[in-house]
């Protein structure tokens, strides 16, 4: 159940002035894309100039599976965070 004030999670990718690629630096909460970019600028680039920032809502990042030999569970999903609490389920649903 989505709370009416819970902002979605966004993954942040930054390319520094001297860098060649965008690097994943972490995540943050924002209500919309413009805010996510500004928050990323404020939180992750305070000591840098002239960077490029990409933001993607976490739920839209799709990931490959880790090596089967290393994994115990066969992931039922291809999301970046494997744990089931990332599903939006109603509070009333117990034992899950």
């Amino acid at each position: 159940m989505m709370e009416k004030d819970a902002w979605p999670l966004w993954e942040i990718f930054i390319r520094s002035k001297q860098g060649l690629d965008h690097k994943h630096v972490g995540s943050l909460h924002a209500a919309d894309a413009a805010m996510a970019i500004e928050n990323a600028r404020d939180a992750y680039t305070r000591r840098m100039e002239g960077v490029s920032i990409w933001v993607v809502e976490s739920k839209y990042v799709h990931a490959s599976n880790p090596d089967d030999s290393g994994s115990f569970y066969d992931p039922a999903n291809d999301k970046i965070y494997r744990h089931p609490t990332f599903y939006d389920l109603p509070d009333e649903l117990k034992h899950m």
Partner: peptide
């Protein structure tokens, strides 16, 4: 103090990768 806010942010973000939410 702002740095400390940022550090909290990085750590909440890292904790969220394990299936808990900021809220």
């Amino acid at each position: 103090v702002q740095d400390e806010a940022g550090h909290g942010l990085y750590l909440y973000a890292a904790a969220e990768t394990l299936g808990t939410s900021r809220d």
